[in-house]
Design a protein around this nucleic acid. Structure first.
Length: 453
RNA sequence: UCCCCGAUAGCUCAGCCGGUAGAGCGGGUGACUGUUAAUCACUAGGUCGCAAGUUCGAGUCUUGCUCGGGGAGCCA
């Protein structure tokens, strides 16, 4: 209405009161309905009969009003609503915990059921919605088939990472086998089950039937990670393409980041202006740079070489075979190349079992996309499509082959080369909003020791 | 899991060498001819996170615990 409303229109509005200002001759209400950052100013002259019904209305109250949209004589807004009729007025208790001033993000987390009525969190969750739809739109335009990977699973995609167990057994007195261990065959599914840590393996199965697919849904990690970047429940985007190698995977990741970012920036200008002003000065320039620059590609060996000769005093030493630390990733993308950077072909010892072995015998066709400001934001690979090589690798890493027979079958029956990547949705949202704690971009976050709301 | 920092009014914080609790905002009341987180006046509001210890006396010093924040590891 603020964007399209014409003075002279009679309108009905519904929303929540952000602030009320009374003076002798006139009353002002600022209304917000979550559709945008700006508020609608409602005006009533003293003595207007409708004001009686608005007497108990204070900050936080919900109202439905009817009135005439007029040009505003005041400076802060183009149009305002001249109140005619009150359709509904639900007062808010005086102890309403959101005040007309800036709160800390830590405090807002304690009122997660109300915090989206604040300017910052209101903007975050608006951008979250736009980003969600931009991602689906990106894949849909390219003909990718969407599949919702199962949330309850019997396999562990990475062979690492603690998982949440799903069970209906009585935890006090579970059925035991003769050896004394818990007898999972008596459980709901007839075997042990967990919450998924990744939809990738299921995505691969679908890619080998539909060519290009993606999953986008919740994933779970029971890691005891106490940082601002980890949550026990978070969302991942995982595209998978058949007849694709690492170069195609890289091209997709680059197009994905640039297009999705560009689109959200365009749609949420007002919200980004708030992030820029209050949370991360320089945010818009940073994101603009990512959208406009083409991404650099660097071999892992080359990256290690640059780091070794950088002259920087890193907290962790660098040598071929070691995984890159956040400090290394940031130096490479920020100082060395000054734009988003793909590091490719990592040592196989530090990467997952399903990544395709390169001909040099010591690296795999893996890629990480590093961006200035955070470091790694996307991890992907070409998948091992040779059944014998994959089987050998899984044996090496001690994976239970019987659980993964279906995954090996994919190679046996027309297992063409394929590749994909995974991206943490909430981390991307942190990056683009400038929020530095993942708990401030997830509606109701779950982290170790905390499940409220 | 490890390291560091913090916890005082509803919120954001101040409180010196240990001497008995303060501000701003918010709430309430009143004033004000169009305000923009309005302004002005008055007013209510506190087991100083919890438990112990040192002391004539602890918000202040010591120990333990709980919760929160930052960083690291692991990762997305």
């Amino acid at each position: 209405m603020l964007a399209r409303g014409q003075a002279g229109e009679k309108v009905r509005v519904q929303g929540w009161v952000r602030t009320r200002r009374d003076s002798k001759g006139v009353t002002f209400l600022e209304l917000n309905d979550g559709s945008c950052l700006a508020h609608l100013q409602v005006v009533a002259e003293a003595g207007h009969p409708a004001l009686r019904e608005l007497a108990p209305v204070t900050t936080g109250s919900g109202v439905a009003l009817e009135g005439l949209l007029v040009q505003s004589p005041g400076a802060g807004q183009a149009v305002e609503l001249r109140l005619e009729r009150v359709l509904l007025a639900t007062p808010s208790h005086p102890e309403y915990p959101l005040q007309k001033k800036r709160h800390t993000l830590e405090y807002l987390r304690t009122i997660a059921h109300l915090r989206m009525r604040s300017n910052t969190l209101g903007a975050v969750f608006r951008v979250r919605d736009r980003l969600f739809h931009a991602i689906h739109g990106f894949f849909r335009e390219r003909g990718f088939l969407f599949l919702a990977a199962p949330i309850i699973t019997a396999s562990d995609a990475e062979g690492a990472g603690a998982m949440f167990r799903v069970t209906t057994l009585d935890v006090e007195t579970p059925p035991r086998s003769s050896s004394g261990s818990v007898d999972w065959s008596k459980d709901f599914f007839g075997k042990g089950a967990h919450l998924t840590v990744s939809g990738q393996l299921e995505g691969e199965a679908f890619a080998l039937a539909y060519h290009d697919v993606y999953t986008f849904g919740p994933t779970f990690r029971a890691e005891n990670s106490n940082t601002a970047r980890h949550a026990a429940e978070f969302w991942m985007v995982e595209p998978e393409m058949a007849f694709a190698d690492l170069a195609a995977d890289r091209a997709l990741a680059e197009a994905f980041v640039r297009e999705v970012l560009g689109q959200v920036l365009e749609q949420c200008r007002e919200d980004f202006a708030l992030f820029e002003k209050h949370w991360e000065p320089g945010l818009l320039a940073k994101l603009d740079h990512v959208v406009k620059s083409s991404f650099e590609v660097m071999d892992y060996g080359e990256a290690v070489g640059h780091l070794e000769t950088s002259g920087e005093a890193f907290q962790f030493p660098v040598s071929w075979g070691a995984d890159l630390q956040t400090e290394h990733e940031r130096w490479l993308t920020e100082k060395k190349v000054g734009r988003p950077l793909f590091v490719v072909n990592y040592p196989k010892a530090i990467k997952a079992f399903y990544m395709r072995a390169n001909d040099d015998g010591r690296t795999v066709a893996a890629m990480d996309l590093l961006v200035p400001g955070v470091g790694e934001i996307i991890g992907g690979s070409q998948r091992e499509d040779r059944e014998d090589v994959l089987r050998e690798r899984m044996r090496e890493m001690g994976l239970p082959l019987e659980d993964y027979q279906w995954y090996l079958d994919l190679r046996r029956y027309g297992g063409v080369p394929h590749a994909g990547f995974g991206m943490g949705f909430d981390r991307l949202l942190m990056y683009i909003t400038g929020m530095s704690n993942i708990r401030d971009v997830i509606p109701f976050p779950r982290v170790p020791g905390y499940v409220e709301f």
